[in-house]
Design a binder for these strands. Structure first.
Length: 609
RNA sequence: GGAGUCGUAGUUCAGUUGGUUAGAACGCCAGCCUGUCACGUUGGAGGUCGCGGGUUCGAGUCCCGUCGGCUCCGCCA
């Protein structure tokens, strides 16, 4: 038989009572986390989102309550009225409320609960339950302290961002969720229109064009905490819908955008109390690729890539000679103290770099007993020693070498660097290393097609000093020059995560037309896709620029998790499903009819089990 | 689209070379217990070995397919 809440009000949360509250009466409400029945004494750990308080039941305090407590089970929702007393026996230092307990005079059972499909807390262990089970019962998973803490961090981050943006004069403007596709390269989620049958909205990949239009409208400083949607495959740090801190400002140069972003990030990271360097160090894209092999370097540790290509300019060793001839690279990383790596580990690392397209992984081990290398036979002891020396390796170290196309060498060694650092525990905890990556290329060489593809949306402006080169490339048809053109685009990278990116936008029609041309967009096609925006540009567009920061990733870093699902209340699985709601789901035929749609795929084909 | 890996009790896992009735811990249920906080203790219930097919006298174990979780490549700022 359940009790009614009636007029009962709680006086304290379950995380609140302290020694100085002893002597008062308290009414607590929450979930039964644990009962310990000792016969004449029964202890109940009562939990809410603020903490856990121990409630004691005994005949001496209330006969009725003591009998009733025997019927409690895990996750029942109860209210307790009782006296707060300092504990007689041992205090519990593990609980914030551990100096006191509540002696129950009255127990109200507000609701029962079925036995949960998994234990919410297993002593001393975190996330031991398979994720599909947890996702299916997300409402229970979210009762766990670690997830509640993460979502509280999330709320704090959002508040910090709003407070800061407001304090520096930015205006929070909302933009529609139902709009037209914006030109950003990812697949759109589309929504059919009932009133315009056969037409579709697209969910925003980002509010890019709309925020630029707010600049044209004169709002001057815009920001929004914007939900963005991209229908692409998921990753540990990527969901189909995610949240950005989106900003845009008029009459702004790069330095002004940098100052705003550094300010808001410093404000957010002040939540940690850890050191957070402002202004951020800067690194050009070119240097990032050269030194770290990636455009989002984790600079919390060293192990930079070393270039050994020059050592092989006149080598007889065919595999390396052909790499040098075809304008490839031979680079390496030095793994400190890893000369003891076994055959098995080396094979594992070889497989690892092959995922990134590397043909193989050569190694040198500077063991105490002598130097060993997979290249000993073809290159000889002298050459191996000089390579190790050139790489800066010392006794006890291992050197890993990849040869091949520049992009493959960078990708594989960049990933290997991080992999070894992880395995060897070289990455310090609780350290936040932000940096700006600047001077991104405007175009990316596409090895399949031989074309230069745009790396950004088409409203990204060029670096002033590259404009003459750009004009030559487009107007005189010297397309090979496109690879050298740099954009006024920049990323924030923290601890190896790309936190966000921004740029100074194009605001002049003449340059804009050249960029369309270079990106292979005809005037007609450009007009068709975003003519409204090109029109707007012609009515007095101020110079402007902005940034978008991925809030989920910021929160991941603050929470110390590598899994974006840990910072979202209701995330989707790697196959983009919600296991709790079982979405995406079917719709009634009548709904389709109303929209003038028919489904041509066999739904059974993709049906579960 | 591709690769790797996992799937056995409610949960986390073990399960030998293919061989009797598939085990453990936690959880759950019932009893005992005056100070527990990973309570203790006695007893009990609980299994479509993800699903489908095949090989075999015999499959949790071997083979093929398939579904699902996770990670990565492609994709995506």
């Amino acid at each position: 038989m359940l009790d009614n809440l009636g007029n009962l009000e709680r006086t304290h949360t379950c995380g609140e009572l302290r020694e100085e509250d002893a002597g008062s009466e308290a009414v607590l409400m929450g979930w039964v986390a644990k009962t310990r029945d000792l016969g004449n004494f029964t202890f109940v750990d009562l939990r809410d989102r603020y903490g856990v308080t121990q409630v004691v039941f005994a005949e001496a305090f209330s006969k009725e309550a003591h009998e009733k407590v025997k019927t409690l089970r895990g996750e029942y929702v109860i209210a307790v009225r009782g006296d707060v007393v300092e504990r007689e026996g041992t205090h519990n230092p593990k609980l914030a409320t551990g100096d006191v307990e509540v002696r129950a005079k009255e127990l109200f059972i507000l609701n029962t609960a079925k036995t949960t499909p998994f234990q919410l807390e297993v002593a001393g262990k975190e996330n031991v339950v398979n994720e599909d089970t947890r996702l299916k019962h997300r409402y229970l998973d979210l009762r766990r302290k670690s997830l509640q803490d993460n979502l509280i961090v999330r709320a704090n981050v959002l508040r910090k961002m709003r407070d800061y943006m407001d304090s520096v004069g930015f205006l929070e403007l909302e933009t529609p969720i139902l709009l037209r596709s914006t030109p950003e390269g990812a697949r759109d989620f589309i929504v059919p229109s009932r009133i315009q049958p056969g037409k579709f909205f697209a969910l925003p990949q980002s509010p890019q064009i709309l925020k630029q239009i707010t600049m044209i409208s004169g709002f001057d400083k815009y920001y929004q905490i914007a939900r963005c949607f991209r229908d692409e495959d998921l990753r540990a740090d990527r969901q189909p819908e995610f949240t950005q801190l989106d900003i845009e400002m008029s009459f702004a140069n790069r330095e002004m955008v940098f100052r705003v972003m550094e300010g808001v990030m410093a404000s957010v990271f002040s939540l940690t109390g850890a050191e957070f360097e402002v202004p951020f160090p800067r690194m050009t894209y070119r240097d990032a690729m050269r030194r770290y092999g990636v455009d989002k370097p984790d600079v919390r540790f060293g192990m930079e890539l070393q270039d050994l290509t020059g050592e092989f300019s006149d080598t007889d060793f065919a595999p390396f000679a052909s790499v040098v001839e075809s304008d490839g690279e031979i680079k390496c990383v030095v793994a400190k103290g890893c000369s003891g790596y076994s055959r098995k580990i080396l094979d594992g690392l070889q497989d690892f770099v092959k995922r990134y397209g590397a043909g193989g992984l050569a190694w040198i081990k500077l063991e105490d007993g002598g130097t060993k290398s997979s290249l000993m036979k073809p290159l000889g002891e002298n050459k191996i020693s000089s390579l190790a020396e050139k790489a800066g390796a010392e006794k006890g170290d291992a050197v890993f070498i990849v040869a091949g196309r520049k992009s493959i060498v960078a990708a594989s060694l960049g990933a290997l660097r991080k992999e070894i650092a992880k395995n060897e525990d070289l990455i310090p905890d609780g350290v936040y290393k932000p940096l700006w990556v600047t001077e991104f290329p405007m175009f990316e060489y596409n090895e399949d097609t031989g074309n230069y593809d745009p790396m950004h949306h088409p409203f990204t402006s060029l670096m002033d000093e590259d404009i003459p080169l750009f004009k030559r490339a487009v107007e005189d048809g010297e397309t090979d020059l496109l690879g050298q053109i740099r954009a006024r685009a920049y990323d924030i990278v923290i601890n190896g995560y790309e936190i966000g990116s921004g740029s100074i936008r194009v605001h002049q029609s003449a340059i804009q037309e050249l960029i369309f041309k270079a990106q292979g967009l005809t005037k007609e096609r450009a007009k068709e896709r975003f003519g409204f925006f090109l029109d707007a540009l012609e009515y007095g567009t101020p110079p402007h620029g902005g940034f978008a920061a991925g809030i989920d990733r910021v929160i991941m870093i603050l929470c110390g998790t590598e899994n974006i699902r840990d910072v979202l209340a209701f995330p989707k699985t790697a196959s983009a499903q919600d296991l709790m709601m079982d979405s995406p789901g079917d719709v009634d035929k009548s709904q389709l009819d109303e929209l003038g749609l028919s489904v041509t795929v066999d739904p059974e084909k993709n049906a579960g089990d």
